[in-house]
Design a protein around this nucleic acid. Structure first.
Lengths: 257, 257
DNA sequence: AGTGGAAATTCATATATATGATATAATATA
DNA sequence: TATATTATATCATATATATGAATTTCCACT
């Protein structure tokens, strides 16, 4: 089923602007997977016919989704659905820079372990799965310039990643979100992070090679899909002696006004 | 000197689009203070005459500055220059939420101390002032629901805030950035934060009422103006037992692609 | 087979114009 | 005077259209 076979009804008299209706219809196509990551979407002329509006209105709708990051426009080529990739990963979800710099460099990732276990109460609640159901728990070690600073613990529902094995995970040739996207048809669109300072326990101190009770930055990240279904719970334990968690907010505004 | 008295030259043959040229001209008016915080800018028709372009081009330029947060459009009223205010502060620069919630509430602010001192080497470098020159150092205590969780230490150049006194600072009726804006004509437009986990020293532990060596989240925030002149160095020491530093990134992207 | 250039495709910029929505100001009316 | 109505100003949405820029495709020519 191609998107050009669908019919869309834009209500000219609705109180929501036509461009927003079109933006929402396109968004739903992304959500319903009628437009897949990396795919070329119909050109502007086709969209004009599909939605029966003028080209300016189509451009406003597509422009909105582009600003939101769901679409990528390329002059002379076409407009594409965003996809997770090494090139797009870079600054999107990795926030660390060496002391005194602002440069967020690509981390070295080293696999530690992959296991199946029962979800804790918190994990089950967060992932919105039955209490005690199976989850995969994966540990990674991340570093910069050959020095390890971060332990990543990933928890995902087994039910949502049915055929995932340690081999598949380890042998991926791209980012983890790219693996979710390409092998499991799960597309992470937004993340929320909560940071605390904690003391290193025995496990963390040995993994990060720091003293017991050293101050550690703990990041709980929740990765969600288009409609805020929580897919991944990722906890990072960071030794911040040599690196900083960097958060730059340009301009005058936060989330909303 | 009103902006309507100025003449602007938009080069129709330039490789930079006309809308961007207009956006930049308007931005420079903000930067040069020809358009001041809170001020109503000329209406679209006037801008059309001023720049000698069509209304669509003007709207694209203004729209860009609106997205960047420098301008606020109000239908039926006009377009205004953004200003720092209690209402705009709320989510912009305060990132903390009580455990288990996502709600970033307005903090209680309690004044601790105000003093003049010589800048340390790091402070002088960061603020780009001569080593050893005078700075104000201000301590505040921030809390939520009557419980204090955060110690804020503000360092600003005395030279840039010539007549600032403890009284003026304490008696402000709005946010600190509003004080900078209205009394000192200094407008903070962007912030960059660097976070680390550290151990509470004697001072911090007593101020935050925690044990010595408790894990503390330290945030170094740099506040800058339109053209990235660093104005303020603010260090927050946060007891994160009951609160989280929250960082939500909607959509798929970080700073850039 | 390889190269260069023209053509086609697609998004980007820009103009001109009309109508609608929203907030304020001015006016008329009770 | 107080209230309701009308007018005005301003931004928002939408259409129609023309030209430009970037990229790929294709074809003629060597």
């Amino acid at each position: 089923m191609s998107i050009t076979d669908l019919t869309f009804n834009i209500d000219k008299d609705s109180k929501t602007p036509m461009w927003l209706q079109i933006r929402n219809e396109l968004f739903n196509c992304l959500y319903r997977d009628e437009l897949r990551p990396g795919q070329l979407i119909p050109n502007e002329k086709t969209l004009v016919e599909l939605f029966n509006v003028s080209i300016g209105t189509v451009r406003k709708a597509v422009g909105a989704l582009e600003k939101e990051g769901f679409l990528i426009r390329k002059q002379g080529l076409g407009t594409f659905v965003f996809q997770h990739d090494k090139s797009t990963f870079h600054f999107a979800y990795f926030h660390f820079a060496l002391n005194g710099t602002e440069d967020v460099t690509y981390p070295d990732v080293e696999f530690i372990s992959f296991e199946t276990k029962k979800a804790t109460k918190y994990e089950a609640e967060t992932l919105n799965i039955p209490s005690g159901s199976n989850v995969y728990q994966i540990f990674n070690k991340l570093g910069i310039n050959k020095k390890n600073y971060i332990i990543d613990r990933i928890v995902i529902s087994q039910a949502k990643f049915p055929m995932l094995t340690e081999e598949i995970f380890k042998n991926r040739t791209n980012t983890i979100y790219n693996l979710y996207q390409n092998k499991f048809n799960i597309f992470i669109t937004n993340c929320s992070e909560k940071l605390k300072a904690i003391s290193a326990d025995k496990t963390i101190s040995s993994l990060l090679n720091v003293k017991l009770d050293s101050p550690i930055l703990r990041i709980e990240r929740i990765g969600q899909t288009y409609h805020n279904e929580t897919i991944e719970l990722r906890t990072s334990f960071v030794h911040t002696r040599d690196i900083d968690y960097v958060n730059t907010q340009n301009s005058t505004f936060g989330d909303t006004f």
